[in-house]
């Protein structure tokens, strides 16, 4: 369980002026919950994720994971970035293997786990390819497998499907859901797509543009496993979409 309390972040701009990016975020995320953080670009939602990851220090407030304050990055919180951030000098297999070996998993055991993971993300045939030989969707699958490999309790996903085309994005959303159904990790998922947030999540936190504050938190009470074609006809799904869309539009017009 993640407890975020009064979290704020102030950046120093290049001109030396302080800029308030995040202001007083407080939220508890129970174990196994899929929470989306929704907001326009520049609202600090990615920064929030980076702070939880321990990559960026907070200016005020605290974050505890399972009761312990976080101190820097750790393998209990695995990031997945929009930019994939694969090691370009390693093959698909090498990328997924790397974290496992770092955790001290014996080689043969690690190899077996990598094969399973690659099968899960449908990339067994591409194990010996280098990242530059893969499409964007395949790269993101590798990145997800690489993070799942060291079995973090929490997944930190920073607009992971933002750089993909619509078709690939839908496909990967479904794959992510089926993976999540299996082991029910806690997921923090940053996105600016209302549809994506509602479709994937148990809860959606909507943020205001600059400085980022919590505007509202929605509990998404929809049946799982989620099937897109059925949801599209689901009255409650439509109401969530409309309500959140209105909230996001409200006061957000000046931010493109």
């Amino acid at each position: 369980m993640i407890a975020i309390e009064g979290l704020s972040k102030t950046f120093e701009t290049s001109g030396g002026e302080p800029h308030l990016a995040l202001d007083g975020i407080s939220i508890d995320i129970p174990k196994g919950q899929f929470l989306s953080i929704l907001g326009p670009s520049g609202c600090g939602k990615s920064t929030l994720l980076y702070i939880v990851g321990g990559f960026v220090p907070a200016s005020a407030g605290r974050i505890r994971v399972d009761g312990r304050a976080i101190a820097g990055p750790g393998p209990d919180r695995g990031p997945v970035f929009q930019e994939f951030a694969l090691f370009p000098w390693k093959t698909v297999r090498g990328n997924v293997l790397y974290g496992l070996l770092q955790q001290g998993v014996p080689r043969d055991q690690a190899e077996r786990r990598v094969s399973e993971l690659l099968q899960m993300v449908h990339l067994s045939r591409y194990a010996d390819f280098y990242p530059k030989e893969l499409s964007g969707g395949m790269k993101q699958r590798v990145a997800i497998a690489r993070t799942l490999a060291y079995d973090p309790a929490i997944l930190l996903m920073d607009e992971p499907f933002g750089a993909l085309d619509a078709h690939t994005r839908t496909k990967l959303q479904n794959e992510l859901l089926s993976i999540w159904e299996r082991d029910r990790k806690t997921v923090l998922f940053v996105t600016h797509s209302v549809e994506e947030a509602v479709y994937l999540s148990d809860r959606v936190m909507v943020m205001t543009p600059s400085p980022g504050r919590q505007k509202a938190v929605f509990d998404i009470d929809l049946p799982r496993p989620r099937i897109r074609a059925e949801l599209l006809l689901n009255r409650r799904y439509q109401e969530y979409l409309i309500a959140i869309e209105r909230l996001v539009q409200d006061g957000g017009e000046d931010e493109a």
Partner: peptide
């Protein structure tokens, strides 16, 4: 070097010296 690459390695538990040779150098 892509900052996210360094973060990914950090999350895997690589210390600063190891990051320099295992991530920064190859990148």
């Amino acid at each position: 070097v892509d900052q996210k690459l360094i973060w990914s390695a950090q999350a895997m538990g690589l210390g600063p010296v190891k990051r320099l040779f295992a991530v920064v150098l190859p990148s």
